[in-house]
């Protein structure tokens, strides 16, 4: 869906979509593919449109079960197989319970505000709620561009203001495809 910034609103560099997915439980588990299980919550092109959607969403720390919220640029699906992601990868940050809401907000604000300074490389960001820990990740197009991935890591460290012992790892989507696991 095409959206434009409203009159007097602050345009963003890109259009973005919010997606939501939750791992199906019980008998639905096998019949529902990951893609079918993902729903677009909203599309935005301005700072104001972003807040309108975000303010109505459940905060990341209040999400339950095995759920993920994705914010991706318009035209890019949050799937490894998407053309924009095929050669890409992601930085993964594992967070102990209690930190996710603040870190997730800081991550998306940095992305929307173009703080990463890596051109068109960033594809989107994901927050993944799990039982023991929460995980945030940021996806980029080219897993083999070391300069790009280092810059993303450095910006992540700065904007998230993470505790010093936080574990960060980079995983290519190709590896994820091979082991069929996100993390």
């Amino acid at each position: 869906k095409d959206v434009e910034p409203g009159p007097g609103e602050h345009a963003l560099q890109y259009t973005y979509c919010f997606w939501f997915s939750r791992k199906p439980t019980g008998r639905n588990q096998q019949s529902t593919s990951f893609e079918k299980n993902m729903k677009i919550i909203g599309t935005f092109r301005s700072v104001e449109q972003f807040w309108q959607i975000y303010s109505h969403m459940i905060r990341a720390n209040e999400l339950t079960g095995h759920s993920d919220v994705h914010v991706f640029k318009g035209g890019i699906k949050p799937l490894w197989e998407d053309k924009a992601n095929r050669l890409g990868g992601k930085w993964i940050v594992r967070l102990r319970k209690g930190l996710v809401a603040r870190c997730w907000e800081n991550l998306i604000l940095a992305m929307l505000g173009e703080q990463f300074m890596v051109g068109d490389e960033v594809c989107g960001a994901v927050v993944s709620i799990r039982f023991q820990e929460d995980i945030i990740s940021i996806w980029n197009r080219s897993a083999n561009e070391n300069q790009v991935t280092s810059r993303i890591r450095d910006t992540l460290c700065r904007v998230l203001n993470l505790p010093p012992n936080t574990i960060m790892e980079y995983k290519t989507h190709n590896e994820s495809l091979k082991d069929r696991s996100s993390f």
Binding site: G8, E9, H10, Q13, E48, W51, L112, E114
Partner: peptide, 21 residues
């Protein structure tokens, strides 16, 4: 080309008073 850059505090200000910026 030119990129539209916003810092965190500006984005947060837009949340609290969208038309005041």
């Amino acid at each position: 080309g030119t990129r539209i850059i916003y810092d965190r505090s500006f984005l947060l200000k837009c949340r609290s008073s969208p038309m005041a910026n």
